[in-house]
């Protein structure tokens, strides 16, 4: 009996954790009339898509998805490239003062974005990059690379020196050795970083909220976050908006699950 009571308690807890997702899934497909007559727990009579379609059109959700994909994708690639260059110098090149450089990167990674936002906002306005996706990409490339450099330097610090020596004897330049030897061999670590940077950037809210103000440039979390509690939203439309925010996140998790669960302890250093 005792054996099952702990299991039962954990199942109840799991149900509580999943309950919000179930409610969103259940009510996003109802009509407002169905919601007010049957309440949030009733099963929908059929698949009513008008709430989702209406919300999708209202916020031009396809556009937001594209913005989020574009920004997160560019940041992931850019930040990995920058991390590789840094880690090549720090981990393999062992340049002087590398410990201090790493500390600077680590501090940069823990700084709150609030302490950077206003000067960045001011600069963006001066150079005409306010409300531009390019500017947000640039900022996040640097922020994510701060973490990537820290992690990748440790990994490349253990890179077998004989391989690079052999390449140097064969006359390969440093630049060639980096792209032909170091990058291909480190591919597994780089792909973990790529996925993490993509998801972290997708999840960002504060800086995109400040810098992407026009409807054409907003990301998914910003568009949905700003509209939450809007007077023009009814119960089922709110549910539909929550669903549209949940689905991409869960899809990414399912696609990248194996890499993520392997790398999650890596991410813990962040």
């Amino acid at each position: 009996m005792r054996r099952y009571s702990l299991l039962a308690a954990l199942i109840v807890l799991a149900f509580v954790m999943l309950f919000p997702f179930l409610l969103v899934g259940l009510n996003a497909f109802k009509s407002p009339a169905e919601y007010s007559s049957g309440g949030p727990l009733a099963l929908p009579d059929g698949i009513y898509l008008d709430g989702i379609v209406a919300f999708w059109d209202r916020v031009d959700f396809g556009r937001k998805l594209w913005n989020s994909l574009l920004i997160s994708g560019c940041v992931a690639v850019g930040a990995v490239a920058l991390s590789v260059l840094n880690a090549y110098a720090l981990g393999i090149g062992r340049v002087r003062g590398r410990l201090w450089i790493l500390v600077v990167f680590l501090v940069a990674n823990t700084l709150p974005q609030e302490a950077l936002v206003y000067p960045l906002y001011y600069l963006a306005k001066q150079v005409g990059l306010y409300d531009s996706r390019l500017f947000v990409i640039l900022i996040f490339v640097v922020i994510q690379a701060a973490f990537g450099t820290y992690l990748l330097s440790a990994v490349l610090g253990r890179f077998p020196a004989e391989i690079l020596e052999a390449a140097a004897i064969d006359g390969a330049s440093k630049w060639r050795a980096l792209w032909r030897i170091v990058v291909p061999i480190s591919r597994p670590t780089l792909s973990v970083l790529l996925i993490f940077f993509f998801i972290w950037t997708w999840n960002e809210f504060f800086l995109p909220l400040v810098f992407l103000i026009s409807n054409d440039n907003q990301t998914v979390p910003v568009a949905l976050g700003v509209l939450q509690g809007d007077r023009l939203m009814d119960a089922t439309m709110s549910s539909a908006s929550a669903l549209l925010g949940i689905v991409p996140a869960v899809v990414f998790f399912l696609i990248f699950q194996r890499t993520l669960t392997r790398g999650i302890t890596v991410g813990a250093i962040k």
Binding site: P20, F205, V222, G225, G245, A249
Partner: peptide, 17 residues
């Protein structure tokens, strides 16, 4: 599962609930 959400979306979910 809640951890996979962007934290702002977690807010959207609970704002509705």
């Amino acid at each position: 599962l809640p951890q996979v959400l962007p934290v702002a979306i977690a807010g959207v979910v609970w704002g509705w609930l």
